[in-house]
């Protein structure tokens, strides 16, 4: 066997030994677990991503009054920012009121959104206990949980929102205009 054949053979063996979807460019570097933990803030409907901690309705009222009421109203009635409470039973009307209570399909989304984006002037500053608490309070204001409710990584994903089954897939194209040229209307 010549050196060339030997080299080719070795190269072939190496190629075959690589995983099927091998990195082809090699830019970037592996993300460490610590780095991922610092950025991995999303929370899914099954509760994946919820941190340790807990909060109740009474604690949530304190968080809300301090950090949320200025924009969302004393009881979540809105103005200047979004209304958060009420509207259940209005979705079929011509002037639907879409709030957490009437429209949002998952309670976990409250946690995800409040932590990542609220309060508007200081996102990602509330502690997990504070976010659980204000989530409990918002659910209570909407009549979804009682005054003694406690939210944590176990209880929050179990909340069934009133509009849980209200969403349907895209049905477009849903119109069939005819490109008429004369005597069209």
């Amino acid at each position: 066997m010549s050196m060339l054949e030997l080299r080719t053979g070795v190269a072939l063996v190496l190629l075959l030994a690589l995983p099927a979807a091998a990195q082809t460019y090699g830019f970037g570097r592996p993300a460490t677990e610590r780095e991922i933990a610092g950025w991995n803030i999303d929370v899914s409907p099954d509760g994946a991503g919820l941190p340790n901690g807990s909060g109740n309705v009474a604690q949530g009222k304190q968080v809300y009054d301090k950090s949320c009421a200025t924009c969302h109203g004393a009881k979540g009635e809105g103005k200047p920012a979004d209304r958060l409470v009420g509207g259940q039973g209005t979705l079929k009307s011509d002037r639907a009121v879409r709030t957490i209570g009437s429209y949002w399909p998952f309670a976990t989304t409250i946690y995800d959104y409040v932590y990542r984006a609220m309060p508007y002037n200081a996102p990602q500053t509330l502690t997990p206990d504070e976010v659980y608490a204000v989530t409990a309070y918002l659910l209570h204001l909407n009549g979804i949980v009682g005054a003694d409710a406690v939210m944590n990584a176990q209880t929050l994903p179990k909340i069934r929102m009133p509009n849980r089954d209200g969403f349907v897939p895209d049905a477009r194209p849903d119109t069939a205009n005819v490109p008429c040229r004369v005597d069209c209307r």
Binding site: L91, A96, R98, I100, P105, F106, T109, F167, V168
Partner: peptide
């Protein structure tokens, strides 16, 4: 979910 969904007259909303 709460935004960028399209409410329909029957009370449902189209998503994605």
């Amino acid at each position: 979910t709460s935004k960028y969904t399209d409410p329909m007259p029957d009370g449902t909303a189209r998503q994605f």
